[in-house]
Amino acid sequence: MIDTSTVQDTVEPHRPSDDLRVVPVRHWGTWAATVVALLSLAGLIGSLAKNDNLHWDVVGKYLFADLIFNGLTTTLWLTAAAMALGLVLGTLIAVMRLSASPVLYGLATFFVWIFRGTPLLVQIIFWGYAAALYEYIKIGIPFTDITFLQAETNTLLTPAIAALLALGLNEAAYASEIVRAGIQSVDPGQSEAAHSLGMRSALTMRRIVLPQAMRVIIPPMGNETINMLKMTALVSVISAHDLMSNIQDVYAQNYQVIPMLVVASLWYLALVTLLSIPQAWLERRYGRGTARAAHASPLQRMLGATAGLFSKTSSKDAS
């Protein structure tokens, strides 16, 4: 006879005992780095709060002043208008760079070469003092004396308009490269299939290619918008009455440079934080169906880690 109990003991897998305790791996280095970072941050905040040279009374006085809000209005409309101009013109330049026409490709490449190859500050100063190059702006027939429209350059190119042209044209050069990369990321078979259905090139670009390219275009364009908001501070060199221009006017009179720069920094931080919210939403919106869409934001990761820590602590207390 065969002892079946011995066979069953050899076939059945070994079951772990209920007394076996699972101990998670302790990441002591991560905890130590977290403690050091928090202590450093607390020390920095404490030193800034107790520093009398910051003059927090001056910061509180000008933080919500009318002059600051007037500058914020100019900063916001400059950012929105320059980004709109840059995106529209950049899309056109990107399509021209992808064109089979050597003339269109050459003109678009020359535009990108000029505005990406020179500093933005130089471009702002150039447009602000364009009247030194052309006293009058004329529209007429080239190489003749026939003129349909003529106006003084200083009358048309106010500091705000000069700032808009400088920011918008510079952004168009960078936006064109972003849009071009997005268009080239779309499978060429999509365009071929659309053409086989009788769709024209312009309709294919608008209905088929660009909607798919938005997944690649949106993240860097969101960063460009945030960067544009901060770059508007450079237009203070031509007195465009933006936030930084008004800040400079104030500390030129009261000599409180550091407190006024703190006011500017707080407002720029607040505006950048607000712009980050729609950027994150757009990234999730156009990133649906990809692994990137499932990524949690830094705030969600922090809240999730805190909730997990509290749940572990409560479970230990209950046991």
Rank of each mutant, 00 (worst) to 15 (best):
L165Y: 09
A166H: 08
A166N: 08
L167P: 02
L167D: 03
L169H: 04
L169E: 03
N170S: 12
E171I: 01
E171G: 07
A173T: 07
A173V: 10
Y174D: 03
A175H: 05
S176K: 09
V179M: 02
V179S: 00
R180E: 15
G182D: 04
I183D: 11
S185Q: 11
S185G: 13
S185P: 14
D187Q: 12
P188S: 12
P188T: 13
P188D: 13
P188G: 12
P188C: 12
G189N: 10
G189K: 08
Q190S: 01
S191Q: 15
S191Y: 13
E192N: 15
E192W: 13
A193F: 11
A194I: 05
H195Q: 15
H195C: 06
S196F: 09
S196M: 12
S196N: 11
S196C: 13
L197V: 08
G198W: 13
R200Y: 14
S201N: 14
S201T: 14
A202N: 11
T204K: 14
R206Y: 08
R206V: 06
R206N: 10
R207D: 07
I208S: 14
V209F: 09
L210D: 10
L210A: 09
L210K: 09
Q212I: 00
R215L: 01
R215H: 01
V216W: 07
I217Q: 08
I218N: 07
P219H: 02
P220I: 09
M221P: 02
M221R: 00
M221I: 02
G222F: 00
N223W: 02
N223T: 04
E224N: 11
I226F: 00
M228Y: 01
L229E: 03
K230W: 06
M231K: 05
M231H: 08
T232Q: 01
T232S: 03
T232H: 03
T232P: 01
V235D: 00
V237T: 08
V237F: 06
V237L: 03
S239V: 11
A240E: 06
A240N: 06
H241V: 07
H241F: 11
D242S: 10
D242P: 11
D242H: 08
L243R: 01
M244I: 10
